[in-house]
């Protein structure tokens, strides 16, 4: 789920900081610049890890600051497509389920990727897996907000942030208009699926298996 990315950036050090070590300043500046931000096609930047190397520093005649190219490694949240993640249900909507990890919450499980058959319960605003029992009977398994859900990552989407440009003539005074919402697409979004045995709410699978488990334990 986490990787180390190797990056190169120029770090500017103001003369007032010359007394501090270059590594400390670089670490501080790179965390200030990158922590908790999404880099396009890289992932969510968590924290500076280590310096690989410094290149020669140069001083420009403007303010006396030194500029140094630094090669460094950064801890990044970028789970692999196909891997499993566990999160909590943030909200349910007719089009699917939104999941959060706390530090990252642009995760969406589309309704077509839920256990089959599932239905959306309008009154409860929750998705329900209609688990077939004997005959025509079915057992309703609710997916409520706050429940822990295990899912597989099936896709990711990066959206490059673009300068917003001049406002449209008509919407210029409507910055609070909710219709502008769809412009703020998250820069990094994960698409998940729970349509396999073992995925979804954890208790769906543990309860059924407990009996088998106990039998085996008795043998050993």
């Amino acid at each position: 789920m986490f990787v180390l990315a190797e990056l190169k950036s120029t770090v500017k050090v103001h003369p007032s900081l010359f007394s501090k070590g270059l590594s400390d300043v670089a670490k501080f500046e790179l965390n200030k610049k990158l922590a908790n931000k999404v880099l396009h096609k890289i992932g969510l930047m968590i924290s500076f890890r280590e310096v690989v190397s410094f290149q020669d520093s140069s001083i420009l005649p403007v303010d006396g600051s030194s500029h140094t190219d630094v090669i460094f490694r950064y801890i990044v949240f970028r789970p692999e497509i196909g891997s499993l993640l566990t999160g909590k249900i943030k909200s349910c909507a007719r089009d699917g389920i939104y999941v959060t990890l706390g530090f990252f919450d642009d995760i969406f499980i589309p309704k077509d990727e839920l256990q089959h058959p599932s239905r959306f319960e309008e009154a409860e605003q929750a998705w329900v897996w209609e688990y077939p029992v004997e005959g025509d009977e079915k057992h309703d398994l609710f997916m409520d907000v706050g429940e822990t859900v295990k899912f597989r990552i099936i896709d990711e989407e990066f959206v490059e942030s673009e300068p917003s440009g001049p406002p449209d003539n008509e919407t210029s005074s409507s910055s609070t208009n909710p219709s502008t919402d769809h412009n703020s697409r998250p820069p990094y979004k994960i698409i998940g699926a729970i349509n396999e045995s073992g995925l979804g709410i954890e208790s769906w699978w543990t309860q059924n298996e407990v009996v088998d488990d106990d039998d085996e334990d008795d043998d050993g």
């Binding site: 990787v3 180390l4 990315a5 190797e6 990056l7 190169k8 950036s9 880099l39 096609k41 890289i42 992932g43 090669i71 490694r73 990044v76 970028r78």
Partner: peptide
């Protein structure tokens, strides 16, 4: 910012 290796 230059990306040298997204998954070192």
């Amino acid at each position: 910012m230059e990306i040298l290796n997204p998954k070192y």
